[in-house]
């Protein structure tokens, strides 16, 4: 067993909080070079910090990160926000294998849910957050259809965020909610909103409750 596996298994044993797994899929293709990837990296730090400022959320929310760039990489396996000290900085390069990344994300979410069940840990509807400035250029249709179906069945909260230049029509296929266009490079505002949403979820006592997202125009319109 690797060191990491030990740590996460202990976490499921020691911490009784209901979990909300949140897999963040980041487009790190070459078009994200420069300001976008810098802002994205800063946004991720904000997200983790904000989660840790709310102890209830920090014990409940588990964050994972998968990047889609030169390759599809699991950068951060699901870890309780409480146990995340910081997040690697990502650099941009390569194509946009979003289909592969979302496939991997859905697979990791399924695996995590199975681990929760084995540990007797209750969980909220999992979250998938996709951030991209382009459109996928691998075979993405099946992954998108699966994410969309799960989200329309309320088995997944799938949030798709387009950065300027993104093909929103294509990205919109990954959820039953419309993809949102991020104004400028307001990654920080988006991640603040995301952490506030997750705080709200972790405060709701029942894991089966419907997810009631705070209004999006808060960050999207600024």
């Amino acid at each position: 067993m690797t060191h990491y596996e030990l740590a996460t298994q202990n976490d499921l044993i020691e911490n009784p909080s209901p979990r909300c797994p949140c897999m963040v899929v980041l487009d790190t293709s070459s078009s994200m070079s420069g300001a976008p990837i810098t802002q994205l990296n800063e946004g991720m730090q904000t997200f983790l910090q904000a989660l840790n400022e709310d102890e209830v959320a920090a014990c409940s929310v588990e964050v994972g990160v998968i990047t889609a760039g030169s390759s599809v990489r699991e950068e951060l396996p699901f870890t309780s926000a409480l146990n995340i000290d910081g997040c690697n900085s990502f650099s941009a390069g390569g194509m946009t294998p979003l289909g592969g990344a979302v496939n991997l994300a859905l697979q990791k979410l399924e695996e995590r849910k199975a681990e929760y069940k084995r540990a007797g840990v209750p969980y909220y509807q999992p979250w998938l957050v996709i951030i991209s400035d382009g459109e996928p250029n691998d075979s993405w249709q099946a992954a998108a259809a699966q994410a969309k179906q799960l989200s329309s069945q309320n088995k997944l909260v799938s949030l798709v965020v387009g950065v300027e230049g993104a093909n929103l029509a294509t990205l919109g296929e990954f959820s039953h909610r419309p993809a949102l266009m991020l104004q400028g490079l307001k990654f920080n505002a988006f991640f603040q909103w995301l952490s506030a949403s997750m705080s709200r979820v972790s405060q709701s006592a029942s894991t089966t409750a419907q997810v009631d997202l705070p209004p999006m125009d808060g960050w999207a319109s600024i």
């Binding site: 009784p16 909080s17 084995r118 840990v121 209750p122 969980y123 029942s206």
Partner: peptide, 16 residues
């Protein structure tokens, strides 16, 4: 029980 819900069960469904 330090936060454990009485209906958290290994191999069960959700607490509700």
């Amino acid at each position: 029980m330090l936060g454990r819900h009485p209906y958290d069960i290994v191999g069960g469904e959700d607490p509700v």
